[in-house]
Amino acid sequence: MTDIRYLAPRTLDEAVGAFAAARGAARILAGGTDLLVQMRAGAVRPGLIVDIKRIAEMTSIEETADGGFRIGAAVSGAVLGEHPRFGQVWPGVLEAVNLIGSTQVQGRASPGGNLCNASPAGDSVPAMIAADAVVTVQGPDGRRQMPVAAVPAGPGRTNLAPGEILVSFTLPPRPRGAGDAYLRMIPRTEMDIAVVGCGVNLTLRDGTCTAARVGLGAVAPTVLLVGEAGKALVGSRLDAAAIEAAAAACRAACRPIDDKRGTIAYRTRIAGVLLKRTVGIAADRAGRA
C-alpha cells in the first residue's frame, strides 16, 4: 500500500543517480512486459520506477562505421524488426528478439529487459551470446563493458553491480560468409516459453566452418555459451559427424531441471535436435553451397 515513485529522466546520469540512490528499492522500466506483470502478481514492490525510454542512447539503433551495430537496451522488438539493415545482417538475433512475447508485447518488449530479467529461457539471450554481443553498462563508478554471457548470474539475478543500468548491446562487424539463426522448442506454436532455445552463429569460407558460437537457453540456471559445440564445428565442412559432435556437446552441457515446462531427459535430448536444425539454417544463411 506504499506509494510508488515514477521517474522518466532524459539523461543516463540522472537515471543512474536516482537508481543508485534508491539502493535496491528501484526497478528499471523499459517495456515493462516483465516488471508490470511481476508487480501485479505481487512478486516485486519497487519504491521507485526509473523509466529509461526517454534517454536517447537507450532507444536508438546505430550501425557503426566498422559495420557493427549498437542497439539501445530499451529498443523494442518491433522497432528492431523495422530497421532496414539489422535483420539482413543478424537474422538470427532478430528472430530471437521477435519471439519475446506476442505481437502486442513486441511493441514494448526489449532485448535489454529480456537479458536483465535473467530468465534462463529468455529468447534473445542465446542468440546474443552466439553473436558474441557485448553490453555496455553504466553505474555510479562509470561505464564498463561485459560479454552478454557474463550478465546472467542465475534465475532472476544478474552480475550487474548495485546501481548499474544496462545501456546497450554492441554486435561485432560481420565477415563474409557469416550466418546466424535461433530456434526454440515450445509445446505450442505461440504464446509460450522456450523449453529449450538454441542460437548459432557461424562463418563459412569455401564450405569450411572457420568460426562458430552456440548459445543454449532453458537448460541450466543461466543461458550457456557452449564452447565445445562451437569447437566441434570449426574446421569441419559441417558434415554429419561434426554436427553430431556439436549436438553431443550441447547435450553434455545441459544441467536442466525437471519442472512443469519440461523434463531433464526431454530438455537434454531436444538441445541436440535444435542444435542440428539451427546449424542448418545458419549455414544456409552463411551461403552454404
Binding site: P187, R188, E190, M191, D192, I193, K260, R261
Partner: peptide
C-alpha cells in the same frame, strides 16, 4: 500451473 502460460490451451496458430 495456474496460468494460461503453463496450463497449455491451444492458441489460434496451433
Amino acid at each position: 500451473n495456474p496460468s494460461f502460460l503453463d496450463y497449455r490451451m491451444p492458441v489460434c496458430s496451433d
